[in-house]
Computed example of a mutant assay.
Amino acid sequence: MSYKTLRKTPGDGFDRIQWYDARLNTHTIRADDPITARTVAPGERTRKPGKWKGQKPYQGHYWCAGARTSVFHESMTEYAGMMLIDHLYDIIAVYAQPMLMTFFDGRYCYPDFLAIEADGTRHVVEVHPKALMKAEDEVKFAHAARVCEVLGWRFTLIDQLSDTVRMNLEMMSRYRHHRYTPTPDVEDHILRTAKRNDTFGSLRRALITDKPGELIPFLFHLMWKGELSFDLTARFTEHTTLTAG
């Protein structure tokens, strides 16, 4: 197993953030000032896992609909976590393993993702299953959450995703690409019809045209975008309630 990582710094009583730019130059700031933190601009992953025979985690790339780009994931658990963030938040950019956080006590972490939301919010995302959580991990994530709060960033730890949530995300994500964005008149038609038909089954039937399934991709795209919401934790059926707006 081989890794290419940004070199860790020793704990010196301060929280620090380090990252690579696109030319692999290292940048370092003290993580105590929201204004200075705006300079964090990852250009390359700070931690690059290798591949080896018998490897279980499946590495790959997730196409992020909000950022309209592919983002590296180290496992399918990370893939699912990124899919959830892409669905729930208005993302315009995302970076995998974007930085090295070194904390005042010498502990450190390489966050899984940094997402930039449309309103400028920076969003650090960690994906770590509860079954693999150790006491040291809990301390590390608590440090990361604390630093994010100081900087005015959002912090999310995804430690559990049920099979139901994952399946619901995968169902909608097939139509996450902007090619499925309905025209304004079609969107208005679907949302107005949804207000008169509050279950998926009744809405689907009300949207039938002379072309089988013509409006279904647009319907699922609006669900992905949150224009039509439902209980993500419950099994999706014809009787699932959809709420417009």
Rank of each mutant, 00 (worst) to 15 (best):
S2F: 14
K4G: 07
L6Q: 01
L6M: 08
R7A: 08
D12Y: 12
G13A: 11
I17E: 03
Q18H: 14
Y20I: 07
D21H: 12
R23C: 11
N25H: 15
T26A: 14
H27G: 02
A31K: 01
A31D: 00
A31C: 06
P34V: 13
A37E: 02
A37M: 11
R38F: 15
V40F: 13
A41W: 13
P42R: 12
R47H: 11
G50M: 05
W52F: 14
H61G: 07
Y62W: 15
W63V: 03
A65R: 01
R68V: 04
S70C: 12
F72R: 03
H73V: 06
M76V: 10
E78Y: 07
G81L: 07
M83E: 01
D86N: 06
H87Y: 15
I91E: 03
A93S: 11
V94Q: 04
A96G: 03
A96C: 07
Q97R: 03
M101D: 00
F103Y: 15
D105R: 13
G106Q: 06
P111C: 09
F113W: 12
L114K: 03
I116D: 03
H123L: 12
H123M: 12
H123G: 03
E126D: 11
L132V: 08
M133R: 06
F141Q: 02
A142L: 07
H143W: 14
A145K: 12
R146S: 06
V150Q: 06
V150E: 04
V150M: 07
G152E: 07
F155V: 03
F155S: 02
L157D: 00
I158Q: 01
I158P: 00
I158D: 00
D159K: 04
T164G: 00
T164S: 02
V165K: 03
M167I: 05
M171I: 13
M172C: 15
R176N: 07
H177F: 15
H177Q: 08
R179Q: 12
T181W: 14
P182I: 12
P184S: 05
D188W: 09
H189M: 15
R192L: 09
T193R: 05
R196G: 05
T199G: 01
S202W: 09
L203H: 01
R204A: 09
I208T: 14
T209N: 07
T209W: 08
P212V: 11
K225T: 05
E227S: 12
L228I: 12
S229W: 09
F230L: 13
L232N: 02
G245Q: 11
